[in-house]
Nucleic acid binder design. Structure first.
Lengths: 315, 315
DNA sequence: ACATCGCGGTCTTCAGAGTAA
DNA sequence: ATTACTCTGAAGACCGCGATG
């Protein structure tokens, strides 16, 4: 049997009230009793039952994280960083990866509510927006509009689109393909595309939009393109492999940009130019925004846009 | 205020007992009451408080996952798969990434206990073994010895070492470097090394062991080596980049093997030969082992070793 | 249908003992 | 002896639900 408050009290030879006072640090207490209690706690290896505590309406110190998956290294690193930063603030994380399945995501949202999380950070990309209206816990969204009262923290994708385009133009490519995801109409991906469009417009250039969902990479590439703006790093590297098999060398015979900028990909594929979304800063802002939401639930908190930067392979 | 059981009962005009019966589906109930209750639940957007339920001694339906990090794509994919499979079994996951920090790991272990998880899957690589003796919840370990009564599920690293070596020998390399991690003396990594040693011995070949922690990759490679056994895929690709800068081509001028075999790396770097630890199967075994531990906590459950296979780049 | 208890804590109330001014 | 203050304790309500009678 796990030790309970009562057991600690009995071992220390004092009342449960006093033990509770020691644990929660209130009221007036003598040094001696405090020490006795701590000794008893150690001896019994006592852990206050977090469930019982949370039932008093105390914060559960749980934050729910909803992300489509952990396989995308960018999400994995973001989640990892969020988890790390939250832990130092005394929060535990429940990670829900919805696997891009709205039903699962709905279940998870219910679960998070049922488990009384103190807040939710959602990086989901596929939930019906209405679901989020009913949620009472404070929410912050990563990179996507969910509802009017839910603040968004995102990387500056308009700037990202511009930087990627600028890179291609500077390397004087002739024919540009841009991978676009038409489904993501509510997400800032549109901004990215707008950044591309505007930059190209300023330089009187055109491009071919290729819909991610209706195009077979292996058949369109290399094709006529010597410039490609991919929608993420993994996709970018798939395309690189296709060019490679055709005997074409990245950064020489053709130019291509990724998007996301995970540390992992930079380590494994340092030759890939890409737009870097700053993971540490995004995490900090997401958490800071969530914390103010938790402290003052009625206030409206402004959305935050974090600048990105472009990684150019050295040499 | 969030809806409670009582609110549902009042709205439906019946007692809490009956509502509870409907929710937990026992006792005899009329169709009419059931419908009334469901209607009331929907209207109030009611979610049973999982914390309160868990307090009755009922299973919390939480499984704790302890892994060093989520950045390693192999861990990320394993966790992702575990999370997915557990969810279909009605379990939620609390992910604790210890960041290779024993203190954090200790805190997390306490936290998991305090939150009454029904079981723990630990892929940790750095905790003092004694900590795990005090844990009362059922535990299964991934790929590492923790304590006598804790079953281990692992990939066959001896076989992995052999397969990697076989690949190099078949490609007639002359001088072989093997990356070793001396710290991991308790882990099956030793088995992997043994597999390498045995295979080479049978072919009357020798190798140079290079300690991961005391060697600067950029200075020893390419050096004299045309064959390298790396200890994981990310490290392997770092080495590939070093050879690349020296103008040497993988699978032609030199041969190298990775270890882990995440789907991600195979997608982004399909040219990397590597030992594949089957993630889906490992997950299944881990969960199955944990479930029998949960059902019959007093039984000793045997450890499981899952075969690996070798991925050779096509072309 | 109702009432009541129990899970493991928190917190409040009321009271009492000891010490000091 | 009076007041005041510090430390501790006993008892009970309560959180939301499940189980019993």
């Amino acid at each position: 049997m796990v030790a309970k408050l009562k057991d600690v009290a009995e071992l220390a030879g004092i009342s449960v009230t006093t033990v509770s006072r020691v644990i929660n640090n209130y009221g007036s207490l003598s040094e001696k009793t405090i020490k006795k209690v701590h000794a008893a706690m150690r001896e019994l290896n006592y852990q206050p039952n977090a469930l019982a505590r949370a039932m008093q309406g105390k914060p559960s110190k749980f934050i729910g994280l909803i992300f489509p998956n952990l396989i995308n290294p960018f999400f994995a690193e973001l989640v990892n960083e969020l988890e790390r930063q939250l832990f130092t603030k005394g929060y535990k994380t429940i990670i829900a990866s919805s696997a891009e399945n709205p039903e699962i995501e709905h279940d998870y949202l219910s679960m998070l509510m049922a488990n009384q999380v103190d807040g939710i950070i959602s990086g989901s990309h596929n939930l019906d927006i209405k679901e989020y209206h009913q949620v009472t816990a404070p929410i912050v969204s990563f990179d996507r509009y969910l509802a009017d009262n839910i603040p968004i923290v995102s990387a500056d994708s308009y700037q990202g689109g511009q930087l990627a385009t600028q890179y291609l133009i500077e390397h004087q490519v002739r024919r540009i393909a841009v991978m676009v995801d038409e489904d993501q109409s509510v997400s800032p991906t549109v901004n990215r595309l707008q950044g591309v469009v505007d930059y190209l417009g300023q330089h009187h250039r055109s491009f071919d939009p290729l819909d991610v969902h209706h195009v077979d990479l292996a058949t369109v590439f290399p094709g006529i393109y010597d410039g490609v703006i991919a929608s993420n790093d993994v996709q970018a590297l798939r395309i690189v492999n296709i060019y490679h098999r055709a005997g074409l060398r990245l950064n020489q015979d053709y130019f291509l940009t990724g998007y996301n900028g995970s540390t992992l990909i930079r380590q494994t594929n340092p030759e890939l130019p890409t737009v870097i979304q700053p993971i540490a800063e995004l995490s900090t802002k997401l958490i800071a925004t969530l914390m103010t939401r938790i402290k003052r639930p009625q206030d409206t908190v402004p959305s935050v846009v974090v600048p990105v930067h472009f990684y150019t392979p050295q040499n």
